[in-house]
Simulated scan of single mutants.
Amino acid sequence: MLKKTLLTLFLLLSAGCIATSDVLEREVGDFDLKLGTTPTRSMAQGLIQPSSAGAFHGGLDLTHGSGWYIGQWSPSVGLSNGSQLKMNTYLGFAQQPFDSSLGYELGLISYSLPQASDLNHQQYYAGLNFAGSRLGAALSNAPGRRDSTLLLDLGSLTPFGTGLQLAYANHALDEPQRLADGRRVRVFHDWSLNLSRPWFGIQFDLSYTDSNLSGTQCAAYSGLNARCDTLLMFEAERPLY
């Protein structure tokens, strides 16, 4: 209860300090401190991105010049009716030893729900970037399942200037999911392909997602994609100002 109260007070104070900006940044000795109501960091080269699940959310990020960083992000403070306090605490190390041509990252993130501790779990992650391309990997040991994910972002490919991003995930359930026809599903995979290109001020995105499950097997699907079966989506976006 004390931990929840302190975190809630911190987030409310942060919101007051960041009235004109989503992120407040300060130098504290050899550390760079960021307070924000929007995530200030993504991990594993963009594979792990903090999200917001409630009206009140925020966190802090503390980075040392040596490459070590630690932080905590709360997707939901649990102040609104029906919401729970959620806390994501992470510790990692990132380096860019060869200018901007090569860099790497290693870390651990812990997802905790103080009001439902049986759902607490950890995720290990790593990232590598090389000459504009990024590779991220993550392994999660959530209750009742194990998930491993790879993300490859090749950046803007010449000569067309098209961005290419691929993701692949493997999901293993501790207990097989029994289907209506008597079959069981314990391990399944899913993947996605995303193409993006700006053209005359318009951002075009083409995405394809799929999994190795189909038909009645989709009743057991709980992966990364919005749908179990094949989904092809095209989007065009242009800012008004």
Rank of each mutant, 00 (worst) to 15 (best):
G78A: 06
E175A: 15
S222R: 14
C218H: 01
S140C: 11
P198D: 04
S101T: 08
R184W: 10
S14D: 15
F98Q: 01
L166E: 00
Q96A: 13
G36N: 04
M233P: 01
A167C: 04
A236P: 03
R227M: 11
A220R: 05
L85P: 00
S222E: 13
T40E: 01
Y168E: 01
S140E: 15
L6G: 07
M233R: 12
Y104W: 15
D210G: 00
L47R: 00
G163S: 03
R197W: 08
S100R: 09
S66T: 13
A15Y: 09
T216R: 12
S14V: 14
R26M: 15
F56G: 03
L213N: 09
R41A: 15
D205M: 09
G58F: 02
L157I: 02
A180M: 07
F200G: 03
F10A: 14
A138D: 10
A131V: 10
T5Q: 14
G29F: 05
P39M: 01
P39A: 03
F10T: 06
T162A: 01
D181S: 09
R146E: 14
I109C: 10
Y104E: 04
P143M: 09
F10Q: 10
A167E: 01
L33A: 12
S74R: 02
R197I: 12
G161Y: 02
D181Y: 12
K86M: 12
E235C: 04
S101K: 08
Y208L: 15
L213F: 04
A226F: 07
P198C: 05
P39S: 02
L150A: 03
A126Y: 12
K34C: 13
G59T: 05
G163Q: 00
K4W: 07
S148Y: 07
G144W: 10
Y168D: 00
A236H: 05
A226D: 15
S148E: 10
T5D: 14
P198I: 02
T149V: 12
L213R: 05
F160K: 02
L113G: 07
D118R: 13
G155F: 01
F98P: 01
P39D: 00
G82N: 13
S222G: 14
Q49D: 14
A53R: 11
Y125M: 11
V77T: 07
L164K: 00
L60W: 14
Q203Y: 07
F160H: 01
Y208V: 13
A55Q: 11
L102T: 09
L113I: 12
S112H: 06
Y104P: 00
L106T: 04
S156P: 00
I48D: 08
L128C: 09
D190P: 06
T158W: 07
W191I: 05
N120I: 07
L151P: 00
N129Q: 13
R238S: 08
A236I: 06
I48T: 07
G182Y: 12
H57C: 11
Q122W: 10
L2G: 10
F130D: 06
S100Y: 06
H171F: 10
L91V: 13
G144E: 11
L151A: 00
L240I: 05
G29A: 06
M87L: 14
S207P: 05
T37A: 07
W191K: 12
V23P: 00
L135S: 08
Q177I: 09
N225T: 02
P159I: 03
E105T: 07
G71M: 12
K3L: 15
N120W: 08
S76Y: 04
T38N: 07
L213G: 04
A55V: 13
G92R: 00
G107D: 09
L166I: 06
S51P: 00
L139D: 07
F56K: 04
